[in-house]
């Protein structure tokens, strides 16, 4: 059996494992969210009809929601509805939860993606540098900057950032995703304004959206940067102590050549895990940042739904977040196999 066939078989087997684990995770996720939803003291009928409804209306809704049937049957029905993409109506917005999610998620996606790009582009080189120069001044500076990132509350940083860069310097735009007069100019094809504007060639809108995005994204990116840099540093210190790094230097590689060409490819697998987890947690929405910047994202949506006992919205949001986590884990697994030959080749 040649290498290609072996690779194809390994890939197929892994794909099957992925799908099985995806299905299992999904059942677990929906079960947990469903039963927690039913076990809370929140009365789903009251959430729909309000507390001033008459007894008849209440009973009618109770039956209409299927609440008289056994819990397990209710779960099966719920699962069936979820699988057909039906998450119910949000009490708070009177809209289907699915269309709410399709509206808020792109906002979060846009923010999280720019944030993780910043976090990676700065955090990884900073971590490599700190690890390679362990105990010397670059290491100390990066540690202090990172420590600041950990310790400062994000809402404070957001307010201070708005005050300086929007209020005093005018370098960026203020809160929201766009200036008011640009609202609804471009068709929401993807909901990600940067992409929608680029599709229609509306570069003014693109620039405006970017200037709204860059400050919250930088602030979020700063927090993931601090984490990514710290982890990269410790992975790097591990690898630089390995003999193959010395061997590379014996062959005549420079110190930085050995760092980037030999040690760095060896930290890819743990690094992908760290970046993947950071990205997933950014995608579940950042409530505080979204609040400060009036960013209509997923975090804000789920939080509002929770405060208003809007169970359909909460369950829908939770399933979305869970799916994101599973999806990113699958994608990380796929990347591991590209970067580490030990996972595929005989």
């Amino acid at each position: 059996m040649d290498n290609k066939t072996a690779w194809a078989i390994a890939t197929a087997r892994q794909a099957a494992t992925f799908l099985a684990s995806l299905a299992l995770t999904f059942v677990g996720l929906t079960a947990v969210t469903f039963f927690i939803g039913r076990l809370t003291k929140i009365d789903p009928v009251l959430a729909v009809v309000g507390d001033k409804a008459s007894k008849e209306v209440y009973d009618q809704t109770f039956l209409a929601l299927g609440l008289d049937r056994p819990l397990i049957v209710q779960y099966a029905l719920y699962l069936k509805r979820v699988l057909s993409g039906e998450f119910g109506i949000s009490v708070l917005t009177s809209q289907p939860v699915l269309s709410d999610l399709l509206r808020v998620f792109p906002a979060t996606f846009e923010l999280a993606t720019i944030a993780i790009i910043i976090g990676m582009a700065v955090g990884v080189p900073a971590g490599v540098w700190a690890g390679a120069r362990k105990g010397r001044w670059p290491d100390h500076i990066i540690r202090i900057v990172g420590l600041f990132g950990y310790s400062v509350p994000v809402f404070w940083l957001g307010l201070v950032g708005l005050f300086f860069f929007y209020g005093k310097l005018g370098w960026v735009s203020g809160t929201g995703r766009l200036d008011v007069f640009y609202d609804d100019v471009v068709t929401a094809r993807t909901g990600v304004i940067l992409i929608d504007a680029a599709i229609e060639g509306e570069w003014d809108i693109f620039r405006n959206a970017f200037s709204h995005l860059i400050l919250p994204a930088t602030i979020l990116g700063y927090f993931s940067l601090a984490y990514i840099a710290r982890m990269t540093r410790s992975f790097m210190i591990d690898q630089l102590a390995q003999e193959y790094v010395t061997a590379a230097r014996v062959k005549g590689r420079s110190f930085w050549g050995a760092v980037w060409r030999h040690a760095f490819p060896n930290i890819m697998v743990p690094l992908i895990t760290v970046v993947g987890l950071s990205y997933a947690s950014l995608l579940e929405g950042a409530v505080l940042t979204e609040t400060v910047f009036a960013w209509p994202g997923l975090g804000l949506y789920i939080t509002r739904a929770l405060f208003n006992s809007d169970m359909n919205a909460v369950l829908g949001g939770t399933i979305l977040v869970g799916t994101i986590f599973v999806g990113i884990n699958l994608f990380s697994d796929f990347l591991y196999r590209i970067f580490d030959p030990r996972l595929t080749a005989g």
Partner: peptide
């Protein structure tokens, strides 16, 4: 070097 298990870069051919 002593042990090829550690002195060869594991992710390079």
């Amino acid at each position: 070097m002593q042990d090829p298990k550690y002195s060869l870069n594991p992710v390079q051919r």
